[in-house]
């Protein structure tokens, strides 16, 4: 597979075309907008918590295929997980897209997120993949303003 084919794997193209959890949660506990001023990607992530468990998570907005697929895969992975598990996943995901070493134990936790392994070959696209995650991090840290990747 060429680097481009590795970047735009079928699963990513599918999540871009048919994003999962692409809706607003009306009674969300928290929501936050994430914005990448470089390319104009803009998403709002909604979270409904049950204690420290992510009861429901969704997003709306627009942007490139990488950012949209990332938001879609992220929301489908995190439903039912604890906030701590979400934070841990973000740390591993960030290592994956920036090309840092990942232990076997960490790799097992990645699951579907593995499809973003091609991103690390494209430094300009790391921000696209991580924008939804940064937005989620902002929610977890209870930030009220727009999260920016710049």
């Amino acid at each position: 597979m060429s680097e481009i084919q590795t970047l735009y794997q079928d699963l990513i193209l599918d999540h871009n075309k048919n994003p999962r959890n692409f809706r607003k949660i009306e009674n969300a506990d928290r929501f936050l907008e994430g914005y990448n001023p470089l390319c104009g990607d803009r998403y709002t992530v909604y979270v409904k918590l049950n204690g420290d468990i992510v009861d429901d998570i969704s997003f709306v907005g627009s942007g490139c295929a990488i950012s949209k697929a990332s938001a879609s895969v992220m929301t489908s992975m995190l439903k039912g997980k604890t906030i701590h598990e979400a934070q841990e996943l973000f740390t591993i995901f960030h290592k994956l897209v920036t090309g840092e070493h990942i232990s076997n134990q960490e790799r097992e936790k990645l699951g579907k997120l593995e499809v973003f392994s091609g991103v690390s070959a494209f430094p300009t696209r790391v921000k696209c993949a991580s924008l939804p995650w940064h937005t989620l991090k902002g929610i977890i840290e209870d930030k009220n303003t727009v999260v920016s990747t710049e």
Binding site: I4, L7, Y8, C39, D41, G63, C64, A65, I66, F122, T124, R125, C128
Partner: peptide, 8 residues
Amino acid sequence: HPHDVGTI
């Protein structure tokens, strides 16, 4: 999206 077009 134009960003994807640019990368390819």
